[in-house]
């Protein structure tokens, strides 16, 4: 796709997974939307940071553990997952509580690089300002 048709899409995720359908819906829209080859970023704010928690085990609640699917996003060229530091801190979480998510860089001999980018609130506000389209979940 030519660069002039490429738009910056930001998906804002603010809900914890499983309690409502928002997190899964967002993930599905991101995966389907990836076919349009836009410049996609994901933001995790407020309880949305819980979507990225390590060691999610849904066996006892009888739901699909879709946390594994975030690790496939790199294959779909979705490689910028912005996590808000203040949202983590407010919830007593640190970066170490989240699952590692990486992508393979084709232009660098398939080296694995981190997809998670930790930003503060001011940087998140700047990210929002830089987008063409924002989708909220």
């Amino acid at each position: 796709m030519s660069d002039e048709n490429r738009k910056k899409f930001l998906y804002i995720n603010r809900k914890a997974p499983y309690g409502t359908i928002y997190a899964l819906e967002s993930l599905e829209v991101v995966l389907i939307g990836a076919a349009f080859e836009q410049d996609v970023s994901l933001a995790f704010i407020d309880d949305g940071v819980y979507q990225l928690m390590a060691n999610q085990d849904t066996a006892a609640v009888g739901m699909k553990n879709f946390s594994k699917t975030y690790r496939a996003l790199g294959d779909y060229e979705v490689r910028k997952l912005y996590v808000e530091k203040e949202s983590l801190a407010e919830r007593g979480l640190t970066a170490e509580n989240l699952m590692p998510i990486v992508y393979e860089d084709e232009d660098d001999d398939y080296a694995e690089k981190p997809s998670l980018i930790f930003v503060d609130r001011a940087e998140m506000a700047a990210l929002i300002r830089s987008q063409d389209v924002i989708l909220s979940f």
């Binding site: 990836a34 076919a35 594994k68 496939a72 294959d75 779909y76």
Partner: peptide, 18 residues
Amino acid sequence: EYYEEYQIAPAVRILVKE
């Protein structure tokens, strides 16, 4: 194997790539 690892079936272009 892909489903086991990621809990999704890949889109065709991803399948081709992988």
